[in-house]
């Protein structure tokens, strides 16, 4: 998210991956575990309009710090050292553009011999339509958003030779939607502060980890996310020290300690609305059954109205 504010991101929808991608690089992600139908629907075995052979029509490369079922199923597995995403992407940029580099031919980058990266750079340029699908192994590696910024720069520069795109492997249901909605209503996808009555933005300053670490907030309302599963322990401890309101359809560790627990109808099961896919394609999720409880939308509106009329 932050990275695209510096270099932007060249991307495409998943159907383009399916129909056109002849080179797919899974970088720091393991869709076979975390996004189980991704490869079959969009990115590997699926038959596309211009990749009629499906899996055989694509070259699949996996870059990761450890072997996984995704790396095992790839045509090539490049096992890198943790903390080397930035170096690797930097090197690939130079190799793709044919720039002079400052290391010897027998050197390793990210624990991988230079010639392997040279071959990958050539494969990237030779592809007709390549994509990098990147996951937490990139965004949570040393460097965080700078890794994405550097990958973004690589992707951009490869477009001087061929079509080449990057897609983040976004996790939970509608996290993409939260970026979109915040984007059109506040101008910023994350980390917004309204203390002055208008939106201000500064990740690190106004994002959840920093706010909790510095004890800058004195109450919290958490919606449709389990902080126990997402946040580090000291952040959870900081939440436990302040009044915390929790909207959640299921019992979990957080419902055990939150100051106020409000059960809600699960979205896409007992409440309808819009979800955004990882490639920003919006789809309508449905109400299949009734719930005894209101939806998140209804609860939030009630809270808002209670405050407005107080």
């Amino acid at each position: 998210m932050i990275a695209r504010q510096q270099v932007g991101l060249a991307t495409c929808t998943l159907g383009e991956v399916k129909n056109r991608a002849d080179l797919v690089i899974f970088w720091g992600c393991n869709p076979r575990e975390s996004h189980q139908r991704h490869q079959a629907r969009y990115s590997a075995s699926v038959k596309g309009q211009f990749i009629p052979e499906g899996r055989k029509g694509r070259r699949i490369v996996a870059i990761d710090v450890r072997p996984t079922s995704t790396t095992a199923a790839a045509d090539q597995f490049i096992q890198v050292e943790p903390g080397s995403t930035f170096e690797t992407a930097t090197l690939l940029r130079a190799l793709v553009a044919g720039k002079r580099i400052g290391i010897e031919e027998d050197a390793k980058v990210g624990g991988v011999p230079l010639h392997v990266w040279r071959e990958l750079a050539e494969a990237i340029k030779a592809a007709d339509y390549g994509v990098i699908l990147f996951g937490l192994g990139v965004t949570h590696d040393r460097g965080h958003d700078l890794n994405v910024e550097e990958l973004g720069a690589l992707i951009r520069e490869v477009n001087d030779y061929t079509r080449f795109y990057g897609l983040p492997m976004r996790g939970h249901g509608n996290v993409t939607g939260s970026n979109q909605v915040m984007g059109w209503q506040t101008g910023y996808p994350i980390a917004v502060n309204f203390n002055r009555g208008y939106p201000r933005y500064n990740p690190g300053e106004f994002s959840v980890l920093g706010l909790l670490a510095r004890e800058e907030v004195d109450a919290a309302i958490i919606i449709a996310t389990d902080p126990g599963a997402h946040l580090p322990g000291d952040s959870v401890a900081a939440l436990q020290a302040i009044p915390t309101i929790y909207l959640e359809p299921h019992v979990n560790t957080t419902t055990g300690w939150a100051t106020v627990v409000i059960p809600v109808a699960p979205a896409g099961v007992a409440a309808e609305g819009t979800f955004y896919r990882m490639d920003n394609v919006p789809l309508r999720v449905r109400k299949l059954v009734d719930s005894p409880f209101p939806s998140d939308e209804e609860v939030l509106r009630s809270i808002k109205e209670t405050i407005l009329h107080a």
Binding site: F86, T90, L91, A94, K99, I101, G102, V109
Partner: peptide
């Protein structure tokens, strides 16, 4: 710890 894109 210099990047490979720096040269002496």
């Amino acid at each position: 710890e210099l990047l490979p894109t720096f040269s002496y």
